[in-house]
Structure formats: C-alpha cells, structure tokens
Computed example of a mutant assay.
Amino acid sequence: MDLLEHQLLEVNGITLSLYSCGPLDGRPVWLLHGFPECWHSWRQQIAPLAAAGYRVLIPEMRGYGQSSAPREPSAYDLITVCGDIQAAMDALGQREVCVVGHDWGAPIAWHLALLEPQRVKALAGMAVPFGGRPKQPAIDIIRQLYAERFHYILHFQQPGVAELEMDADIPRTLRMMMHNTSAVVPKDFFLQDKPVGATLFAGMQDPLTLPDWCDEQAFDEYVKTFAGRGFYGALNWYRNFERNWQRTESFAGRQIEQPALFLLGDKDPVGTLEAYTLKQMPKRVPRLEQHLLSDCGHWIQNEQAEQVNQHLLGFCSRHYPA
C-alpha cells in the first residue's frame, strides 16, 4: 500500500480520483467499489494483484471521496458512470482491461463488458449478479412487492430523506451497515419487517464496535470518504432505476460473452433478494464461473479476502494472464 500512486483525472465532465499500483507495463485490472464503501475496500486485493504483475487501478467512484459528486440524481445512471471509467481508460491509453466490481461496482462491470466487448477481456462481479435487462424497471417491481412494507431502496428514492438519518452520524451509519450485512448477523437492514415510512435503522442498535474484517485504520478511510459531504452522492445511484432501464434498451437480450467470474457469500442477503437473477445468470453469461463462499456476508472481499484472492488470481491467470 505504501507504493500506491494517486491522481485526479478530468474525465466525462467530472474529476475522478484514481489510485493505482503495480508495474506500469502490467495489464490493467480495475477494482470498482460499491455502497457505502470506498477505494480502500479493496485493500486486501491490491498487493496480491500487483505482485502477480498487474497494473491495479482503484477509482473513487462518482459521488465518493475526492471524486466529483454532482447534486442532480440523473448524473448517476449506469451508462454515465460507465462513461467515467471508459474515459479514464482512454486517458490512460488502455486498450485491454479486466474489470472487477463489488455491490454497485458489479453492475458497472457487467455493463462495461456490454459497452466495451473489445476492450474488456475478462470481468468479475461480486455480490450483485447479472440477469439482463428486465421487462420493466426494477423500481416498479419493488414498489409492487413492497407497497405496504419497508424496503431500503424505496426509502432511498426521495432526495434528502435517507440523508437526514445517515449524515447525522457517519461513523454510526457505517458501523450499522457493516455489522448488519456481515455473516455474523442473522437479520439485516435489507430484510427488515417494518412499516412504510420507518427510518432505515429503526429498531436497531449501534454495535459501537467494528466487525472483525475492518480495523480502525481502514474504518477511518471509510469515514473520510463521506466526511463533509455525506451520503447524497452515493444514494443518488439508487435514484436511477428507471433511467437505467431506459438507457439500456439496446442491451435487451444481449449476453455477456467474455469470461466472467461471480463470487457470492453464503450469508449475503443480496443472495436472497436476487435469487431469481442468480438462476438466470448462466443464460445471460455463458462463460461464467461461479463460487459461493462459506461463512461470508456482503463484504466479500474483506470477510473472506484469502478466498477471494485465490479465485480472482486463478481466474485472471486462466483468462487474462499478466
């Protein structure tokens, strides 16, 4: 980590904060973080990939850290965010890449593979599967299913509502979300049984401690990502389901043809939420390799870093050798 380089790139109408490591002539591997995370969530993957000869690139995604955070929610649709990474690849002269994404970073990786079939030679998604373009926006389906019950995505839709609770105490918010989607917690904020209009953390207690996979130094990086700005940029990613659906019309029925790796924790609540998509994914990604990691929640690259690194390095050696 001491050998990390940092730069600010002016791309796609924003400033993109980018960390990098590894040999300058190494084949590029992009690590795309999710919500509510930061570039530092990849801290246990950076050194092994760089040691294997890869040029590792870790952006702070739009809305996070030192990268720009436009106020307008429509600035965060999938195609626009993909454009940030595509423009950065152009600026760095990269013609062949591997893309790895976790949580919200996974849909970016899946869609970069569709947008850039010549440049993206291999990819990996963690936690969030690819099921192709649905017949209607996902937000419409969620509204139908949760008309009388709380759902965190519906709670995130109105700008300013979730921010009031989450911004009030950023360390508390991060502790709550880290603990309540880790493998050790049987119930999480994704699947709470409470009425519409409840707050995100209603009925939940601040653990006041960090999960085993996140030490104080790492936690400081997470807090720094949101300090002074709050969560509005990160939450804006959730306010584009309809726009995402509209902007991906040309991808309807398309398959991801590149070699692809998918990793999921056996105790990740997203696995329950996306059960149907998981069953459909092999049809949409024919060259798919999948692994279910035991005793693992949502924060897969940290909770089971050794297993993730073994799978990721093995996959890259077979399909994207350094």
Rank of each mutant, 00 (worst) to 15 (best):
L24C: 12
H40I: 05
L235G: 14
T15R: 10
Q290G: 11
L313V: 11
Y232F: 09
H298A: 10
L8S: 12
V11C: 04
G271A: 05
Q158I: 03
G63E: 07
Q158M: 02
W110T: 04
P107D: 02
K279I: 07
T277I: 07
A109V: 03
I141N: 02
D212S: 13
V185W: 03
G132I: 00
V97P: 06
K283V: 05
C82H: 15
A122Y: 00
K224D: 11
T209R: 13
L200A: 10
Q66K: 10
D140Q: 01
L24E: 15
L312W: 05
P186M: 04
P269H: 04
E10D: 10
P28G: 02
I58D: 07
E10G: 05
G53V: 12
Q144R: 00
M89L: 09
W237S: 10
G105Y: 03
G125S: 01
K267I: 07
W30P: 01
H155L: 03
K194H: 11
R239A: 09
V308N: 04
R133Q: 00
P186Q: 04
W39F: 13
S250I: 04
L288R: 01
M61V: 14
F190M: 07
P107S: 02
G22K: 08
R149K: 04
L32E: 06
Y76E: 11
P321R: 03
P211I: 05
F315M: 05
Q144Y: 00
L115M: 01
I108L: 03
C214S: 14
L164M: 03
L4E: 15
R254A: 06
E60D: 15
R119G: 01
G83M: 12
A113V: 01
Q94F: 05
G253W: 02
E116T: 01
I108R: 00
F219K: 15
V184S: 09
N244D: 13
A275K: 08
A87L: 06
P269Q: 02
Q290T: 14
E303V: 14
P107Q: 02
Q280N: 08
W299L: 08
L112Q: 02
R62T: 08
M126R: 01
I85C: 08
I108P: 02
P207N: 12
V120T: 00
G13A: 12
R287H: 11
P59H: 12
A50R: 10
K279H: 11
E257M: 05
Q118W: 00
W213N: 15
P28K: 04
L210E: 15
C98I: 02
P259I: 01
S17R: 09
V56A: 14
L78W: 06
A109M: 03
P59M: 08
R175P: 06
L264H: 11
I79V: 14
M281F: 06
A275P: 10
P48Q: 09
D2K: 15
R43A: 14
Q310W: 05
V100E: 03
Q136P: 00
V185H: 07
I153N: 02
V97G: 06
